[in-house]
Design a protein around this nucleic acid. Sequence first.
DNA 1: TCATGTTTGTTAGTAAAGCCTACGAAGGGG
DNA 2: CCCCTTCGTAGGCTTTACTAACAAACATGA
Lengths: 398, 398
Amino acid sequence: MTQPVDGTESPRARVSFLSQSSTAASGRALRPSAKVLPEHARGHNRALVLQSLFTTGQRSRADVARSTGLTRVTVSELVTELMAEGLLVEMGQRGGARPGKPAILLDIDHSSFQVVGVDLSDFAVFRGAVLDLRGNIVRRAELPLTGITGQAALDRVVALTERLLALVSAPLLGIGVGSPGIVDLAGLVATAPNLGWTNVPLQAYLFERFGVPVVVANDANAAVLAEHSFGDAREDLMLVRIGRGVGAGLLLGGGPLYGSRFAAGEIGHVVVGTDGGQQCSCGKQGCLETWIAVPRLEAKLMDAPSEAGRDDVLREAAGRLGIALAPIVGALNLGEVVLSGPGQILGGLFVDATLETIRSRTMAPFHGDLTLRLTTLGDDIVLRGAAVMVISARLGVS
Amino acid sequence: MTQPVDGTESPRARVSFLSQSSTAASGRALRPSAKVLPEHARGHNRALVLQSLFTTGQRSRADVARSTGLTRVTVSELVTELMAEGLLVEMGQRGGARPGKPAILLDIDHSSFQVVGVDLSDFAVFRGAVLDLRGNIVRRAELPLTGITGQAALDRVVALTERLLALVSAPLLGIGVGSPGIVDLAGLVATAPNLGWTNVPLQAYLFERFGVPVVVANDANAAVLAEHSFGDAREDLMLVRIGRGVGAGLLLGGGPLYGSRFAAGEIGHVVVGTDGGQQCSCGKQGCLETWIAVPRLEAKLMDAPSEAGRDDVLREAAGRLGIALAPIVGALNLGEVVLSGPGQILGGLFVDATLETIRSRTMAPFHGDLTLRLTTLGDDIVLRGAAVMVISARLGVS
DNA sequence: TCATGTTTGTTAGTAAAGCCTACGAAGGGG
DNA sequence: CCCCTTCGTAGGCTTTACTAACAAACATGA
């Protein structure tokens, strides 16, 4: 009972290979789905180099080689290619006194490309931005959404995108869109009630219209990607968006979860508790939305007679959220839950009470390290998530 | 708005590659983690060929080439290799009158290798079996577990494994173990209260002891893999094991979910409902286990005065399970939930009532196709899942 | 001062893998 | 009997990453 051997190399085994000998997967291979050609391996390794510099910039070729496991030769070749494309730049020699030839530091040229991000999740306005590769917002634009739906709403998305494209000041990597509703992997919006959309192939439509790579996904899914990339989050993460409705995005093992019908994260209409509740627009009673959707919460807070009364309102709402989340946190063994919504409502007390409820309803030892907090990305979370989708799809980096 | 274009090829894009242009992922690339060498691609493609024959046997090289996308040349080479290893055999020419040279049918030689599977999840007995590549049980063995724990239990696992190894009648692919408790990716049993184990490196221990590839995983995780491979299940699946305790295994997108602390699926101690409940051994009240664990259910059924009373007991328990599962089904947008446990208790009424509760507490349109059923694999589900783990790890096939 | 060791990045050659082209084998149909 | 189709295999080519080797550039210690 000495070393944790991987159990791979066996003297008695006649079949001496392992399909995926990844360290993390440790003998558990996934079902292969598509053939792999040398060029695919190449793309993967190029993304690996890019990722290495994306997470920690200012590294030399030799640094990248060490961190990726590739040889310096291969890294050099990939770097040459990436520099020719403008994605990487040399930043001069590394300072400090070290033996040997001084290293030439590399970094991603974050301004070499730009991304257009669009957020359709607000009920009153379509928001958009031009972002750089770091996810920083370079320019903004928005168009009001005065109750329009259907084709008119689609036209307004196009108008906003046109306005944003005019603001782009570097080669464009693509357009990312975070849409409310159910969105499939091809960027088809199956249903978005607020926009009156049913089976709108938004991604294909925008691609035909603008001839630029487009990625369309659910707004909460975009948000959780942003939180992961910019919010210093871990690999297993649930992001709960609380607004007029309630939705969530799930990131498991670093990848988004879509669900069997692309409706993962749709927790707004899950009934909470066993003691009734208010009537919901969906026909049921006691849906999560009836407890914590912002309009209802604000109404209750208005009615509250005192500061203590408002705290009680918040505590009860937070408790309901905790009751809904506890089985999810338990089943997925989540380490982190992030809330996105109006900070003045969801701040301190609400977060604390939610966490307390989850803790009291799950097995503490498994979740002792559960953290629950508000996002630090504010209202731009979907915009930045939309950018992450494009950067991830085009560069394999996040 | 014609064709669902992938949004990949853009006339304005300077960066003309996509890290992973998988059809399913559709522009959403995962963060790369490890370098890919030509040999890795080779292993992947070999697994692809094997998988193709695994799911649909009796196919020619040309058939495999068409279904995988690889060329006939490459497939031929891989097949030659796999036949030399004994995994594939030629089954003679295809019958029926077709133009052209008749095809030589291939199939996996399911008896060419065997796997040892061990199930430690029963409280009274360690069960084991020798299985073929199809997951059929060839020989069985078991050892009673008369309350022993710690090193004694470990010794008994070794004794059972020794007995099983003596029954193996073909080259051995490896040993798979489904253990209760929290098991990490290296097969270390972090905690298994019933066995009195804490941080027992079972996988490494057995590998050192027997010099054969070993895969150790949680019993529910093994079970869900078995259900997926043999039970005709879909890619998103939750398997709930109901016995002395309650646990679950989750398969999302075809891959198992482990969770941030390898405790995914541990739902037995999630509090259900907002109206109290019985005292649980964990200290809380109203944990799922207090509602549906088999010993408690049996006690209640014994106390029930009539047939109708027993139905009420089952209905209430099923309702509680539904209440616990509803947020999970909703958040993950699960299409399928499978129960594993004593069939005479969990049959008809229990399943129906659980499904009804879930439906009444989630958004129907997203889950109209939710199915909930008992496993068809019976008590061998963990044994067969343990075999799947080994076959999957060694051959990349499931 | 100068030889030595160290680190970096690049050049040349090699091994692995899958592709394309082409070919013989084997059978059906007119 | 000739043409066509399909199957499996050879030979040659391209891509990719690796190993080996080397020049450049710097620190250090005799």
